[in-house]
Amino acid sequence: MIRLLGLQPTYMSHDVLEFEYRISNIHQNTISAIEVSVVWLTEGKGTEDLGVHFFQRLTGNSLAASDWSLPQKVQVPLPDSPLSYEGKLLKISWCVRVRFYLNDGTELVAQQPFYLGTVTREV
């Protein structure tokens, strides 16, 4: 589960995005890796593009060192651009994404969208 710690899911450039994620119903020993990322992606008519602003991969010792019964807090300063946008052919959206890789090969993904900037629709 991912939870944004801001009051609203709208952030401005240079704001610090603060979020936490926690694991429930999965035993810690069954997790082989966790990837936490803050990404923007395009949707719409064109082929989808993806940009990674923040990326963190936890495996082995770094995974074992954390107490997974507590929520894991992450702080990420946000960039100037690209701002979230909804146009005619193109939509740019931002989200926090967490991927869990389990020992049996299963991959679980959770994501939480948020808005960067105040350009809420086509101008």
Partner: peptide
């Protein structure tokens, strides 16, 4: 330039 204008943007397959 309108205050609520989207900035110029260029990715691999999409652009403004």
């Amino acid at each position: 330039i309108p205050l609520e204008a989207m900035h110029s943007f260029q990715s691999l397959h999409n652009a403004i």
